[in-house]
Design a protein around this nucleic acid. Structure first.
Length: 488
RNA sequence: GGCCCCAUCUUCUAACGGUUAGGAAAUCGGGUUCUCAUCCCGGAAAUAGGGGUUCGAUUCCCCUUGGGGUCACCA
């Protein structure tokens, strides 16, 4: 017997394509409730619309959830006491429950053709009234033989109910109608089978997004018809498209969660970010570990208004997560972020782990997502082509003549050739060089930095040279000097 | 059109009915011995409008406006 505080939630997903961020957040909140309160989290596949089903979608959804670190107690891949967890394999169960309603006189066969229904709808629209099937409920419906749609004989009345997020809600009898329970292809509708499954699987908390709130009175009517106790409802706000007021949908460019995984967003960042879209703990804290989220999460602190998906903020958040990781942890992620991608540039494949870690150590604070690694680190692994525009396009450096530039680099070459290339010694020598040349760091260091990396940006000069090592640093300086002579 | 839901800076958001309406992202300016970042300091930036209730409304109520959902044999 589970204790009162335990919860049973489910992520009920249609295999109609990849999982986007809205679905991921939905699953996350289901999961967080169970992690916090104890209980069971169920993954259920709602594949009752054969036409919309997409091959491979279930596997992709499972991959996405696993990447996020979301696991489940019962599901199509692992089974469980309420198996099967795929609705197309539960048709007999729905027929059984439909029969209960038929026996009670609460369900009947729909005798109308599609054309007749369209006419009813058109008439309702012309009269500027909502369409209610029950206004056309047949007096003597035929016996249901499975080829017609089976409809609920509703009991229209006003309903009031409580939603953990939206508070007390109510709607009048006009929201209750004779909806379809079983389609003419023998498959149940979502409206019917999710209620049967939730009951059989012991679901206590129905957490779903806004598009279902208008249907809740119809659901309540069905719970009552079946004699099922209402579960707890929690309505999640939309995740909206950037800038707009519209729900973020696949049409609007909602990305596959796995696209972010490939780009090098860390799963802990994605979890943190999704949780922050529509939820906060009431403090100013924004960066949460998964464990902190579990400890602090509660459904009653979920926002009512929609939140737009701001990628910029996602990248910022990823940067802060990257910076709080240990070097070893981060290095592990650069080798595999859970999607089988090694993010290092091709040229780094020949380098050893220690060298790569040193490089990672100095670029950790400027990394926002892992796929930036190549552009940030390539010059540590290969000589970039000399690009004099880096010098000539620099406001200060372009004021110097080629002779002056060469003189500075030669001075650098001389003192560096006596260095043991420890970071400390390099820093010392560079500082002394400022004095002996009488130059400002803005000129001297910029010039040396460019001449040793030929990259538009790089970490601190002493650190960079220390990692490159004496041979490579001096080799590059000398190549740069040669080039400056040629082009003089 | 009926029914339902929502409304604080550009964005994510905080504020037991009592705050100069706070933080963060982005942006702008400055600093940190070079670039790109990090970090630090500073600027600009909001309670949709109107009525109530109250000694006092971002907060409670009503109306308006705006946005969204739903009225499928999709979920």
């Amino acid at each position: 017997m589970p204790s009162m505080s335990e919860a049973v939630t489910r992520f009920a997903v249609s295999p109609t394509g990849y999982m986007h961020v809205g679905g991921a957040r939905n699953a996350l909140f289901d999961w967080l409730v169970v992690q916090k309160q104890g209980g069971r989290f169920i993954l259920r596949i709602e594949d009752t619309d054969q036409a919309r089903e997409v091959e491979g979608a279930v596997a992709h959804i499972i991959t996405s959830l696993k990447w996020l670190g979301i696991d489940w107690h019962e599901g199509p891949d692992i089974g469980g006491p309420h198996a099967p967890y795929t609705q197309s394999e539960r048709l007999d169960i729905y027929k059984e429950w439909a029969q209960k309603l038929i026996d009670k006189g609460l369900a009947y066969a729909d005798p109308y053709s599609k054309e007749e229904l369209d006419e009813f709808r058109a008439a309702a629209q012309a009269a500027k009234k909502p369409f209610l099937y029950r206004d056309h409920r047949p007096d003597n419906p035929p016996t249901w033989d499975g080829t017609q749609p089976l409809r609920l004989k509703s009991d229209p009345k006003a309903y009031s109910w409580h939603d953990l997020v939206l508070g007390d809600l109510s709607a009048g009898a006009e929201a209750v109608d004779d909806f379809v329970l079983i389609k003419s292809d023998g498959f149940p509708t979502y409206n019917f089978c999710h209620i049967v499954d939730d009951e059989l699987m012991g679901v206590t908390h129905v957490i779903r997004s806004q598009e279902f709130t208008a249907s809740v009175p119809r659901f309540l009517n069905l719970y009552d018809a079946l004699g099922i106790k209402w579960p707890v409802f929690a309505t999640l706000p939309w995740i909206m498209a950037p800038g707009g007021k519209k729900k973020l949908s696949k049409r609007d460019g909602a990305k596959d969660v796995m696209d972010y995984a490939k780009q090098g967003i860390l799963p802990e960042t994605m979890v943190n970010f999704l949780a922050s879209l529509g939820w906060n703990d009431g403090t100013e804290q924004e960066i949460f570990s998964v464990q902190e989220l579990i400890d602090k999460f509660s459904l009653d602190r979920i926002q009512r208004a929609g939140a737009s998906f701001d990628e910029q903020r996602l990248f910022w958040m990823n940067g802060t997560h990257i910076r709080t990781m240990t070097l070893d942890e981060l290095y592990g992620r650069t080798l595999d972020n859970g999607v089988g991608i090694n993010y290092w540039p091709e040229e780094a494949k020949a380098a050893n782990d220690d060298y790569c870690k040193q490089v990672l150590g100095v670029i950790q604070e400027r990394l926002k997502y892992l796929s930036e690694l190549p552009e940030l680190t390539r010059f540590f692994f290969t000589d970039l082509p000399v690009d004099l525009e880096l010098i000539d396009g620099n406001k200060q450096l372009s004021k110097l003549s080629r002779e002056e530039q060469r003189a500075l680099l030669e001075a650098a070459q001389e003192t560096l050739s006596g260095s043991n290339f420890s970071a400390e010694d390099l820093a010392d020598r560079l500082n002394k060089l400022l004095e002996t040349t009488g130059q400002k760091p803005g000129i001297l260091f910029s010039l040396i930095r460019i001449a040793t990396t030929w990259a538009p940006a790089s970490p601190g000069l002493a650190d960079t040279m220390h990692i490159l090592g004496k041979d490579l640093t001096l080799k590059r300086l000398s190549i740069s000097l040669d080039t400056l002579s040629e082009k003089a």
